[in-house]
């Protein structure tokens, strides 16, 4: 059903996208770009923008600022974008599924429909990993153990109500197993718990455990996406063992409401052309992100689908 919706949305989006393709392409950027994030300094969105900023400066010769509008799990930044920001294309917000989840959790917060989705840039791969000392070597063994011992395994996640928890829930439902979900105060803490062997496995991004996955302290056993990761060619996707659970942990850019569609296209195009520039390139390669560019219309269609799935997930938490 969801797949059909995506397809339909995609089919509808293609002609729209073509129609919006500007006859006289707008020049962007020609002056200072203000990049807004809900992350505090050092957080995921902040680090992303602090890599994007110098890349834009190098390539286009304009200056940039990074603006941390922290608070309300992203609500502060979303509200500011929806009500205060100028839709001239020079104030942009970095987004992750948090910007979908927060408006679903509480009333009165602007949602993605109140802003202008510009481009999806990356997908963060979601993976399952265990400790080197674990007797579990493969995803099949993990499933066997979980079936033999319902609620016996503990699986750490970064935080409650996050996309990682949704993936874990979908994983349990699809494979008909039950494990105990252990939320932490962020992905780094979950990795620490696994390093100390206090939990049996962690669902999360490889980026948060990079050095430990590389030196073999932690062992990745499956990937929740359509294709294997380039950096881990030996780790099977979950669909290879017969279950279809794919995470949609996107990273993208929104603008304020009421932007000129030509301008939106121009920004999307400019951002989509940065993948090979430095330090952007180093940032996503080191972080194991998958470039997954979607223009404004495809991104919007993708968000519609993701939002429905998250809505039922948030309702299930209540």
């Amino acid at each position: 059903m969801n797949g059909f919706k995506t397809l339909l949305a995609g089919v509808l989006a293609v002609p729209l996208g073509l129609a919006a393709a500007p006859a006289d392409a707008q020049d962007w950027p020609t002056r200072q770009v203000n990049l807004v994030t809900h992350s505090s300094p050092g957080g995921g969105g902040d680090v992303m923008l602090r890599n994007l900023a110098p890349t834009i400066e190098n390539k286009f010769g304009v200056s940039t600022t990074v603006d941390n509008r922290v608070g309300g799990s992203g609500a502060v930044a979303m509200t500011w974008m929806a009500t205060q920001a100028n839709p001239d294309g020079y104030t942009l917000l970095s987004v992750t599924p948090t910007q979908l989840i927060t408006p679903l959790r509480a009333e009165g917060i602007p949602s993605y429909e109140d802003l202008t989705p510009i481009a999806r840039l990356f997908l963060d791969p979601t993976t399952l990993y265990v400790h080197r000392n674990s007797p579990i070597e493969t995803i099949e063994e993990f499933l066997e153990e979980a079936r033999a011992n319902p609620r016996g395994l503990t699986v750490g996640i970064g935080s409650a109500g996050s996309l990682d928890q949704l993936v874990l829930q979908n994983f349990m439902a699809a494979t008909d197993i039950e494990v105990r979900t252990v939320p932490h105060e962020g992905g780094g803490d979950a990795v620490l718990a696994l390093l100390g062997e206090h939990v049996d496995a962690v669902v999360g991004e490889p980026g948060q455990a990079l050095t430990h996955l590389e030196d073999g302290t932690l062992r990745m056993i499956t990937v929740f996406q359509d294709e294997r990761l380039d950096a881990y060619p030996d780790v099977p996707t979950l669909s290879e063992v017969g279950y279809d659970v794919v995470s949609n942990k996107f990273r993208g850019i929104f603008g304020p409401p009421n932007m000129d569609p030509d301008l939106v296209e121009a920004i999307a195009e400019a951002l989509g052309g940065l993948y090979q520039d430095e330090p952007w390139n180093t940032y996503w390669v080191e972080g194991s992100l998958n470039p997954a560019f979607l223009g404004p219309d495809d991104f919007k269609a993708n968000l519609d689908v993701a939002n429905e799935e998250l809505r039922s997930f948030i309702e299930s938490l209540n």
Binding site: A75, V76, A106, G108, A160, I314
Partner: peptide, 18 residues
């Protein structure tokens, strides 16, 4: 609430969600 991810005692104010 750190274990459900849902707001608690925020009196409907998003400024209190963190």
């Amino acid at each position: 609430d750190p274990f459900s991810g849902l707001p608690r005692f925020t009196f409907g104010r998003y400024e209190l969600m963190d």
